[in-house]
Measured scan of single mutants.
Amino acid sequence: MISNAKIARINELAAKAKAGVITEEEKAEQQKLRQEYLK
């Protein structure tokens, strides 16, 4: 099960992506976390 901290990070990265200020490194982290969440 995914931790609350990881869910919070997913939401934080989603907000950054929506604002258009996300880095390529953060995009990769976001994809990794989303895949983990979906498992």
Rank of each mutant, 00 (worst) to 15 (best):
K18T: 08
A19G: 06
E12T: 04
E25C: 07
E12H: 06
A5W: 01
E24Q: 09
Q35G: 11
A8Y: 02
Q35L: 10
M1W: 05
Y37P: 04
I10E: 04
I10D: 03
L13R: 02
K39G: 15
Q30V: 09
E36F: 01
Y37R: 07
E12F: 03
E29F: 02
L13D: 01
R9P: 00
K16W: 00
N4E: 14
Y37G: 11
G20L: 03
Q35H: 11
E25F: 06
K16P: 01
L13K: 01
K32Q: 13
I10T: 04
N11G: 09
L38Y: 09
E25N: 07
I22D: 02
E12Y: 03
N4F: 04
T23V: 01
K27G: 04
L38F: 07
K39L: 07
I10F: 11
L13E: 03
Q31I: 13
E25S: 09
K6D: 08
K18M: 12
K16M: 06
E26G: 00
Q31D: 14
K39M: 10
I7H: 07
L13N: 00
K6R: 08
A15L: 11
T23S: 08
A28Q: 12
I10W: 13
L38P: 13
A8L: 06
K16Q: 03
K27I: 13
I22M: 08
E29V: 01
I2E: 11
M1R: 12
A5M: 05
S3Q: 09
Y37K: 05
N4D: 14
A8R: 11
Q30K: 06
L33P: 00
A15I: 09
A19M: 10
K6I: 15
I2D: 11
T23C: 04
A19V: 07
I7G: 05
I22P: 02
S3G: 11
G20H: 05
R9C: 02
R9K: 05
A8G: 07
S3L: 05
I10G: 04
R9G: 01
Y37A: 13
E29A: 02
A17S: 10
I22Q: 04
A14F: 07
A17L: 07
A28K: 13
A19W: 05
K27Q: 10
I10V: 06
L13I: 04
E29K: 01
A8H: 08
S3D: 12
L38Q: 14
G20W: 00
T23H: 01
V21H: 10
L38G: 09
E29Y: 02
G20T: 03
K6L: 15
Q31N: 14
G20K: 05
N11S: 08
V21P: 05
I22N: 01
S3V: 07
A5E: 14
E12K: 04
T23E: 02
Q31F: 04
A14L: 10
E12G: 03
E24C: 10
V21Y: 06
A19T: 08
E36R: 02
R34E: 15
Y37I: 15
G20N: 05
A28G: 06
R9W: 02
T23W: 00
E25G: 06
K27L: 11
M1G: 13
E25I: 08
I22E: 02
E36C: 08
K27S: 08
E26S: 00
E29C: 05
A8I: 12
Q35N: 11
E24S: 07
A5P: 10
K18R: 13
E36K: 03
V21T: 14
K6M: 15
E26N: 00
K6E: 05
E24K: 10
K32T: 07
A19L: 12
S3Y: 00
A19S: 08
K39V: 11
K32I: 10
K27N: 06
R34G: 10
Y37D: 14
E29Q: 03
T23R: 03
I7S: 07
K32Y: 09
N11M: 14
E24A: 10
Y37N: 08
V21N: 12
E29W: 01
A5V: 11
L33S: 03
E12A: 05
K18F: 05
R34A: 14
K39I: 09
A14T: 08
A15T: 08
K39F: 06
A15W: 05
I10C: 14
Q35D: 15
I7L: 13
K16Y: 01
A8M: 08
I2A: 09
E12D: 07
K32E: 12
K27D: 07
K32L: 13
A15Y: 04
S3K: 10
A14E: 14
R34I: 15
N4L: 13
E26P: 00
A28W: 11
R34C: 15
E12W: 01
A28T: 11
E26L: 01
E25V: 08
K18C: 14
Q30P: 00
E36T: 02
R9E: 02
Q31M: 06
A5I: 12
Y37E: 14
Q31S: 11
A28M: 14
Q31V: 12
A17Y: 04
K6F: 06
L33M: 04
V21Q: 13
G20A: 04
I10M: 15
L33Y: 04
K6W: 03
N4K: 14
Q30I: 13
A19P: 00
R34Q: 15
G20S: 03
I7V: 11
K6H: 09
N4S: 12
A8T: 10
E24P: 11
N11C: 13
K32S: 08
K32D: 07
E12S: 04
I22V: 04
M1Q: 13
L13W: 00
Q35T: 10
K16F: 02
K6Y: 04
T23A: 01
